[in-house]
């Protein structure tokens, strides 16, 4: 009650035409953790089709931003819409690939089981998983080159294979808007290529992927948009406009050596 009374200074509501049709529109999002702001006054409109890299230093609120956008953690203020409607009513349009470290790999489930979980949202409460669902899940495993491992317990897969299973699960969600939290961490080169291909396919199908990404060197190669975060948003937009040395310097401060930056700029300018 009191929390409601003391609601943050409300923001302008999301009414613009651009916001109504955007896969993800955020206005004035603030999130606090342990009485400290970790995301501050973030406004962002995602492109209708494309791959967005969310970059920023450790502790800049990248994962928090994703979780708040998904409605997994409470926000202090701000409005979030997905295709013009609330997140809760658009869950069927949203796919999510959490960080790989967040699950128990000894869990009694096979690769196929995990991918089938991607279909649960469509199956809905109380309805059981049927044969057709499993067949569909197998198809998605095949797309990431993992059909041969369908019956393998997930803990017995390598890090890269596990990530592919997670990716297949995201494909199974058949969403229009995807959130991914560091999918490239701890995977081998072949898996990295496979993930990039999946991302390209998703983009070609007209989907939007918002992806927390750690590696500044590869960001301009893999993504076409950037959101640079540093608790507050530093810049966002097409890669060439947003991913500039100046903006990165603003986000990373003194921690990016000039040489690192100069290495990045030609890439960013492509």
């Amino acid at each position: 009650m009191i929390a409601k009374l003391l609601r943050l200074q409300p923001h302008q509501p999301l009414t613009s035409e651009a916001a109504k049709s955007a896969p993800l529109a955020i206005q004035g999002l603030s999130v606090a953790y342990h009485h400290k702001p970790v995301v501050w006054d973030l406004s962002f409109i995602a492109p209708a089709q494309g791959l967005v890299a969310v970059v920023g230093p450790n502790g800049a609120g990248k994962s928090t931003f994703i979780k708040a956008a998904l409605g997994l953690i409470p926000k202090l203020s701000g409005e979030i819409t997905v295709y013009g409607k609330s997140v809760a009513s658009q869950r069927h349009l949203i796919g999510y690939v959490p960080q790989r470290g967040s699950v128990d790999w000894d869990f009694p489930a096979s690769a196929l089981d995990v991918v089938t979980m991607g279909l649960y949202g469509k199956i809905g409460w109380l309805r059981p998983v049927r044969k057709a669902h499993r067949a569909a899940a197998l198809g998605y495993l095949e797309q990431v080159g993992m059909a041969d491992f369908a019956d393998r317990q997930i803990g017995q897969l390598s890090g890269g294979q596990q990530q592919r299973v997670f990716l297949a699960r995201a494909l199974a969600q058949d969403a229009a808007l995807y959130f991914m939290d560091e999918p490239f961490v701890g995977v081998d080169a072949a898996t990295e290529r496979a993930i990039v291909n999946v991302l390209k396919d998703l983009k070609d199908q007209g989907k939007t992927v918002i992806c927390v990404h750690h590696d500044l060197q590869s960001a301009p190669d893999y993504f076409d948009h950037a959101l640079i975060l540093n608790i507050r948003p530093v810049a966002s937009g097409p890669m060439a406009e947003a991913f500039t040395a100046e903006n990165l310097q603003h986000a990373y401060g003194g921690r990016l050596a000039p040489s690192e930056l100069s290495g990045l700029i030609p890439l960013a300018g492509q």
Binding site: K36, P37, V234, R255
Partner: peptide
């Protein structure tokens, strides 16, 4: 505060009173 965040992100993250 925003300038502090840009210039010294690490210190700003650790600062409990940032923007408070």
């Amino acid at each position: 505060w925003n300038q502090y965040l840009s210039d010294y992100p690490e210190e700003a993250f650790a600062q409990k009173n940032w923007s408070l």
